[in-house]
Design a protein around this nucleic acid. Structure first.
Lengths: 230, 230
DNA sequence: TACATAGTTCGATCCTAACCGAACCATCTC
DNA sequence: GAGATGGTTCGGTTAGGATCGAACTATGTA
């Protein structure tokens, strides 16, 4: 008895405390894992999984699988704008605000992600390799394929970086990996691992005990940037 | 664990079939009664009443009481825009459309509302009286107070319209009455009744049997418009 | 005055959906 | 390989809220 698209399912999805918390957390445009979102919403993994399925099914959220992780993002800028609209209306009628959590600057700067470099430095590396055309990316049905170009191979060879390519290994030479702090891609795969290893060997950086922090020396970071980024 | 105003209550309110139907029906900006909204949502009066209370409490909808009727409207243009936003998102993910109902052009043109004139002609009358300053309006704590000015009294007197004011009657001389077809005010009260009566006496118009339609003759409508509206 | 209509309140029912524990699969680490 | 971690599936519990019948108030009609 009324006209227009059916807004009920969408509004109902947003109208749940846990899902709203997740969606709000995604409003920055950055991707988050299911576990992170579970923490944000303060619910168990199972419940989070169910919620995320619904959000993805409804098209509010998209997901990118990466190894055993799943990175979730708002599907669209329109979704963020809708949430903004809702906040605008909510603000008028009795706003309740929450406080942001702390964070670790060192972790954001540089850390290991499995066996390769993540954080601001890792993202800068990826961007630079891409700009210099040492790597090239192509989209392949939901998957981002990253390859080392011949130019890239040659450069790494000259620098003295050896790629430990095992036979019969399924591990890709290059891989794009979503960064949790910067929320953009950094370089993973065999190449990413080799590069981080190079940093250790050259004593440019070392890993902090009991932490994922990769601590560069001043000289080390300089050398790293000069060689790979600038 | 997230920031910004709390969007959950608002979204949850919209995320219900019945309430969404009502809100959508109100999107034209026109006011509707609770009973009308019950029909739109296809639920009983009781349930409608409960829904409308929530919508009013949340500030999404405002209400104007008028005798035994309550006219509901969206509180704000922002609300309509929010609903538009939602429809935009809904459209992308699988839109379901409904069909509008029929209507009766004659009823919309002119009809009785209790004992006074409603419809396009009634609203035109009210607007004209207001413009000519025959009536003046003032807001009084949720209520719209309408009074006949001395100029207005004089004009009506000259035309030969007698106001049947009974002693001890609570009935106001003038009243603004929300029009269901045009959804704006028309003139009610003793004055409104006297004016409609004048139309009958002058044979400008007659009431159709078994209907609320007031049918003006061509000459009648001309005379009416010339005297009161133009 | 009696009657009709608009809307509300109360109480009870009933269904959906959020939630968690437990067990499971998949991926990465050692 | 064993162990750890990220995520899903299944089953059962529970709470919230949408709904209606019945009884009520308030307003207007005859």
């Amino acid at each position: 008895m009324y006209d227009g698209p059916n807004i009920v399912p969408i509004a109902a999805l947003i109208g749940d405390q846990a899902r709203a918390a997740m969606l709000t957390a995604l409003m920055s445009g950055e991707a988050r894992t299911a576990t992170e979102l579970a923490a944000v919403a303060n619910i168990t993994k199972q419940t989070t999984s169910a919620h995320l399925s619904k959000l993805v099914d409804a098209g509010l959220v998209v997901v990118a699988s990466q190894g055993r992780h799943k990175y979730f993002q708002l599907a669209d800028d329109d979704i963020a704008q809708l949430l903004e609209s809702l906040m605008g209306v909510a603000e008028k009628t009795g706003a309740v605000r929450f406080r942001p959590g702390p964070n670790d600057p060192e972790l954001r700067a540089a850390r290991v992600c499995y066996d390769h470099l993540a954080g601001e430095l890792g993202v800068a590396l990826y961007d630079s390799f891409s700009k210099k055309q040492w790597i090239k990316t192509s989209k392949q049905a939901d998957d981002l394929k990253v390859e080392l170009t011949t130019a890239g191979k040659k450069q790494l060879d000259e620098i003295g970086i050896v790629l430990a390519v095992k036979k019969n290994s399924r591990r890709p030479i290059c891989r794009a990996c979503l960064d949790w702090s910067v929320r953009r891609h950094h370089l993973a795969g065999v190449t990413g691992a080799a590069l981080l290893n190079h940093c250790y060997e050259k004593k440019w950086a070392k890993r902090l005990d009991d932490s994922r922090v990769v601590q560069f020396t001043q000289r080390g970071e300089s050398a790293f940037r000069k060689l790979f980024i600038d």
